[in-house]
Each structure stands twice: as C-alpha cells, then as structure tokens.
C-alpha cells in the first residue's frame, strides 16, 4: 500500500514539475489549474503520511529508522504547498519554475522514502 502510494506520488510530482516547467517555458505564472494539480499532489502526500503512520502504529519498522521516515513524510507533505505559496508571491514565470522545482524535490523525496521504508 505504502509502496504504491510512494510510486504514485512520485510520478504525480514529476508530472506537476513537467507541467509547471512547460508553463514557465511559455512565460506563464501559475494559474488555478496548476493549484488544483498541486492540491492533488498534496492530497497524495497527505494520504502517504496517514498510511505511513498507520503502518508504524501496526508495529512495522522502516529500514532506516522511524525518525527519518516521519521526517521525510512531513517534508514530502510540506514541499509542494510551500512552493505553491511562493508562486503566489511571484506572479511571473519564475513562480512556475519554483513549483516545478518543488515537484522535482518531492520526486527525490519519494525515491528516498522508498529506500527508507525498504520497499
């Protein structure tokens, strides 16, 4: 369950990054549709956090330690919303680039989460 969510979130983050990168290349700021996309990715990250905590509560242990696992889950959840807020303050193509970078960072976090959980 958690592995599937990790994969889906990672792919969604990459799609978001590609989409925002494409908008940036067309000199567009982030728009409503981008924020809906960010919301979808954030909901996935939230689901991942919940599932991760449930797994921990069931007594399963991440390969590389519970502290690091929870820290990465929280980082993954915060990543895209923070980039989204920053793009609200920067209504140019650079806001889109920032969200694209946020998606890329989240994808990297998902790869790390996969290793940390030991999938």
């Amino acid at each position: 369950m958690l592995d599937v969510l990790t994969w889906v979130t990672g792919v969604a983050a990459l799609l978001l990054a590609a989409w925002c990168g494409w908008s940036a290349s067309r000199d567009e700021p982030t728009k409503d549709w981008h924020f809906i996309g960010m919301a979808v990715v954030t909901v996935l990250a939230l689901a991942q956090l919940v599932v991760g905590i449930v797994q921990l509560a069931r007594g399963e242990k991440p390969d590389q330690g519970t502290t690091i696992f929870v820290a990465y889950l929280l980082g993954a959840l915060a990543c895209v919303p923070v980039a989204g807020f920053m793009s609200l303050a920067e209504r140019t193509r650079w806001g889109s680039v920032t969200v694209a970078a946020g998606g890329a960072v989240l994808a990297v976090l998902e790869v790390r989460l996969y290793d940390i959980w030991g999938g």
């Binding site: 990543c79 920053m86 920067e90 140019t92 650079w94 806001g95 920032t98 946020g102």
Partner: peptide, 15 residues
C-alpha cells in the same frame, strides 16, 4: 532580492 529568479533561489536554499 526575491523577485523573479530570486524566488527560485530562495526555494532551493530553503530546501
């Protein structure tokens, strides 16, 4: 310093 590309830099440095 946080307008335009500066916003991206703040994000990356924050990360």
């Amino acid at each position: 310093l946080v307008s335009g590309p500066g916003m991206l830099l703040v994000w990356l440095y924050g990360v």
